[in-house]
Amino acid sequence: MPKGSGKPIPKVKVKKELPSDKGETLLKTLKDRFEKNMNRHKGLNWAKVQAKLEANTEKLKALHAMESTGGEPDVVSYDNKSDEYIFYDCSEQSPDRRSICYDKEGQQEREKKGVHPAGNAVDLAAAMGIELLSEDQYRELQKLGEFDTKTESWIQTPPDIRELGGAIFACHRYGHIFVFHNSAPSFYAARGFRGSLRV
């Protein structure tokens, strides 16, 4: 946790507005990533994904927010029932939305003590238009590669744990996935959060 430097931690900024090219650069980036990582989405076709994105500007804005904060979003599955493609933050290490508490209540508790984190995971995810990964989703992501080998990511915390003041995070160490707890006001330079988006 950042301590004693006296320097304020820059707030994480959410950039949802698409640049002047209306997302063309983002679409190219997403396409290139999709084609380089076919193991994450075997049998899926990029043209169908792109058609969905071009028909939904809000979803494209959410992906821009993920990309601009280092999430490197990519398609990880397709839901046949809802006809939706599912994106996760697939950056090797936790995205550049770090030094954040779990939620607003945790952030406010920390700020009352004169310490100002860069934000909180729950509110940032909402502002971006995405959802924090659940523990099950995090474990599914880890089947596609090794993520968070040097970092940690906040994940969705069950209400009963949160009511007692806690929150959970996960990481990958020693060839295993670890899910652990912390107090919700805690924040660390190596801990961000990963999100998901349905398109």
Rank of each mutant, 00 (worst) to 15 (best):
E131C: 06
I168K: 09
A170V: 11
L164P: 00
G71L: 13
G166P: 03
D96P: 04
Q108N: 13
K113W: 04
K113M: 14
E84I: 07
V76S: 06
V115K: 12
D83V: 06
P159K: 10
K81W: 06
V122F: 01
R162T: 07
L124T: 02
K112L: 15
I177M: 08
K104Y: 14
N80H: 03
C101S: 12
R173K: 15
K81L: 12
P73D: 03
F147D: 06
I86L: 14
K150R: 10
A126D: 09
G129C: 11
S153I: 00
A126T: 09
I130C: 09
E111K: 02
H176R: 12
P117D: 00
Q142M: 11
Q108M: 15
H64W: 09
G119M: 05
P159G: 10
G166Y: 14
A121M: 03
K150N: 12
V115G: 07
L124F: 04
G165I: 08
K104N: 10
L63M: 14
S94Q: 04
W154E: 01
E105D: 07
A121P: 02
H172V: 12
E84F: 12
K143E: 07
D160C: 04
Q108T: 11
T151Y: 08
E135L: 04
Y78Q: 08
K61L: 11
I161R: 10
P95A: 08
K104E: 15
D103A: 04
L144H: 05
P159M: 01
H172A: 02
S68C: 08
W154K: 03
D89A: 11
A65K: 07
G145E: 01
D96S: 08
P158G: 09
D74P: 05
R98G: 00
Q137K: 09
N80A: 15
Y102D: 12
E163I: 06
E105V: 14
D123F: 04
Q93R: 13
E163K: 11
S91Q: 15
I177K: 12
D83H: 14
E105K: 15
Y102M: 03
F169D: 00
Q156Y: 01
A65R: 08
E92A: 15
A62R: 02
K113E: 13
K112M: 11
D123E: 14
I155G: 01
K61H: 09
E152I: 00
F147L: 07
E84Y: 10
L144M: 04
K143W: 06
A121H: 01
R162Y: 11
N80R: 13
Y85R: 11
E140S: 09
